[in-house]
């Protein structure tokens, strides 16, 4: 029997969040040739997002384009997805585990009286085509695979960067279906008054190079060294929770179970012990370099290049060397 696997595409001001394409890529991997790969695009003036969904392999794109969807609010988006799901009965619905996806996903799952696995780190199908969603449980010490064959749709949220961004397909072949929903602005109980963008966002999830610091950094001002190195390498600065809790750096830099999931080309960790809650957020990095004084630090169990030593010896020399290289 053919299945319908849907991805709810997240977009802001006509720009899609890459997590949606990451999910579509994963769905493409799971789906059989007969299966529908649905992309649900809800927003205002979102033709280009619908187009992009086709390019990332959607075989059907459901579009809801109206002014009430100009920015995200729970009620209209929930109504929209629930209505579509009732009409077309998808088997599986996937969303990004972003603030939007978590807000929307749980409301939709409740309306449809079905289960949702939050923050999955792996998705698979069982032999009958039911979703198996795996997520870290209890501090990342164990992984739990969740299933619920008796309910449909099976829903899951997945964090950005858990799956890689897929290639676009050579010849997009999906169809676009325009949908409609009766919703009046007056009936929506929440209105945006203002949006204050962050001065300088930290784009940790999508950084190619991450220079991360932990509690091995002695004081706040020493994080400057990491910022300097990150700048030289064109990367971002990450941190362990211990460094964030110590007030050395803001929470938006935190990597791990309660921070962000990253998968840079290179992760350089200085003075990070590599606790499991930190590792779950960075172990998908392509290459891991770790500097730590303690030869038994857990970070060495996953590092590709481990250097047992004092970061205060290595970091200044490394900065000096890279600057010389850049000048010559």
């Amino acid at each position: 029997m053919s299945k319908k696997i849907w991805v709810i595409v997240e977009s802001k001001e006509g720009k899609a969040h890459p997590v949606s394409w990451e999910l579509l890529g994963k769905a493409r991997e799971l789906a059989g040739p007969e299966d529908e790969l649905g992309a649900v695009v809800v927003g205002y003036k979102i033709d280009s997002v619908a187009q992009e969904a086709l390019e990332y392999g959607a075989t059907r794109v459901y579009v809801l384009d109206a002014p009430v969807f100009a920015y995200y609010r729970n009620l209209p988006f929930r109504e929209a997805i629930v209505q579509l799901a009732k009409k077309y009965t998808p088997d599986i619905i996937l969303l990004g585990a972003t603030t939007l996806g978590r807000d929307l996903g749980s409301a939709v799952a409740t309306s449809l009286e079905t289960g949702l696995t939050a923050d999955a780190t792996e998705l698979a199908l069982d032999e009958k085509g039911h979703l198996l969603a795996t997520r870290p449980a209890f501090g990342g010490n164990i992984m739990a695979t969740i299933s619920w064959p008796e309910h449909k749709p099976q829903m899951s949220t997945v964090r950005p960067r858990v799956f890689p961004l897929p290639q676009k397909v050579a010849t997009p072949q999906g169809e676009v279906i325009q949908e409609n929903i009766e919703l009046k602005e007056e009936d929506i109980p929440v209105k945006r008054l203002e949006f204050i963008p962050k001065e300088k966002g930290v784009n940790l999830e999508y950084a190619e190079v991450i220079v991360a610091g932990g509690k091995g950094i002695a004081e706040k001002k020493d994080f400057e060294l990491l910022f300097e190195l990150a700048k030289l390498l064109g990367g971002e600065v990450g941190a362990s929770r211990a460094a964030v809790d110590a007030g050395f750096i803001g929470y938006e830099h935190q990597i791990g179970q309660t921070g962000k999931t990253v998968r840079p080309k290179v992760y350089l960790g200085f003075g990070i012990s590599g606790a499991v809650q930190h590792r779950v957020g960075m172990q998908e990095s392509d290459y891991i370099i770790a500097v730590n004084q303690d030869p038994l630090a857990q970070i060495f169990s996953i590092a590709d290049l481990g250097l047992v030593g004092d970061l205060y010896q290595i970091l200044p020399s490394l900065l000096k060397r890279i600057k010389e290289l850049k000048e010559s």
Partner: peptide, 17 residues
């Protein structure tokens, strides 16, 4: 609706040099 299908300890990635 959700059931724990199985639990397991995550595999560590290999370390290098």
């Amino acid at each position: 609706p959700t059931r724990v299908h199985k639990v397991f300890t995550p595999e560590l990635r290999q370390s290098g040099e």
